[in-house]
Simulated assay, not measured.
Amino acid sequence: MPAPGYTMGTTERKQRQKAAVRSAILQAAWELVQADGWQSLSIRRIADAIDYSVPVIYDHFANKNDILLEFAKRGYEGMYEAVQKAKARHAAPEARLEAMAYAYCDYARANTAQYQLMFGVGMNSCEMFRQVPRLGDMEALLEQAIAAVGEQYHATLNVHVKFRCLWAMLQGVNAAYIMEDNDAHCEQQQELILSDMIHTFIKGLKP
């Protein structure tokens, strides 16, 4: 809270105004993504939604992908927090890894628009890892959990390869969930598939 007699300087006022415009751009963009999908997003549509000129949008973001990348960063942050919380709830390595895998999928299912955007931005994986540090943190978190299961059974694992296998399986299950109609029967089948997949993966970590 400003001290009595405090007067905001010109620089600070401009910074706050710039932050407010940036926030408005992101809010409008996210509403458009939720309504029509991220593929339909355009700088022109964002400008029209908040009644600004197109150059104003470009003052804050280089292009549409720059905006989508911001949403992807937020998505990875939220997913990382969900997986981290799942890890903290369990001490036993197998239960911990299982809970983390479920948390990963639960986050994707609860945030399908954001999840699709996280893996749909037109950027190769190396560039994505560079731009989104939480993606690397997520990899490290899951690799540590996989390694802990292997250590429990004195198994020699290629942890990174095992991580890539788990990642691919979780991605596949999530993609199937998003594409399905998701009536009660489909959801039940998806849960059975996810449970079987996770248990089979963990079993494969044992010698």
Rank of each mutant, 00 (worst) to 15 (best):
Y177S: 05
G120Q: 06
L117T: 07
D48E: 15
Q189C: 03
D181L: 09
M179D: 10
C186E: 15
N65Q: 12
A95N: 07
K64S: 12
Q27W: 00
P4W: 01
R45E: 12
L192P: 04
H160S: 14
L26D: 07
P133G: 11
I50W: 00
I46T: 09
H160C: 07
S40R: 15
H199L: 10
I43Y: 00
A49W: 02
T11V: 14
D48L: 15
Y153K: 10
A47R: 06
L170T: 01
Q34I: 10
I146F: 10
R96D: 03
A86I: 06
N63G: 04
A24P: 03
M118V: 10
E180F: 04
I193Y: 01
Y104H: 05
T11A: 14
P2D: 04
G136M: 01
G136Y: 02
Y115M: 12
Y102A: 08
R89C: 02
Q27S: 15
Q39C: 13
C126K: 12
S40Q: 08
E139D: 06
G37L: 06
D181W: 10
A29C: 05
Q189V: 15
E77V: 05
H185Q: 05
H90Q: 15
A86K: 04
M197R: 07
G150D: 14
P133H: 01
Q188N: 04
A29L: 03
A145I: 06
Y58W: 08
H185K: 07
N124S: 10
W38F: 13
F163H: 11
I25L: 03
K18R: 14
Q171E: 11
D36V: 08
M8W: 07
N174H: 02
M169E: 08
Y107G: 06
E77M: 00
A184S: 09
L41V: 14
P4Q: 10
Q84H: 09
S23H: 14
M123P: 01
I178G: 00
L32W: 05
L205F: 00
Y80R: 05
T10W: 09
D181M: 04
A175W: 03
S23T: 12
R96N: 08
E98G: 00
M100F: 02
K73A: 13
H185G: 06
R45W: 02
M79H: 05
E143P: 10
D183E: 09
P133K: 08
R130Q: 09
Q152T: 12
M79K: 04
T156H: 07
V173N: 09
F71W: 00
I193V: 13
G150K: 08
Q116L: 13
F201R: 11
H60I: 03
A49Y: 01
R22H: 08
A140R: 15
A24E: 02
R109G: 10
E98V: 15
Q188R: 11
A175G: 04
V132M: 02
Y6R: 06
S40C: 13
Q34D: 13
R134V: 07
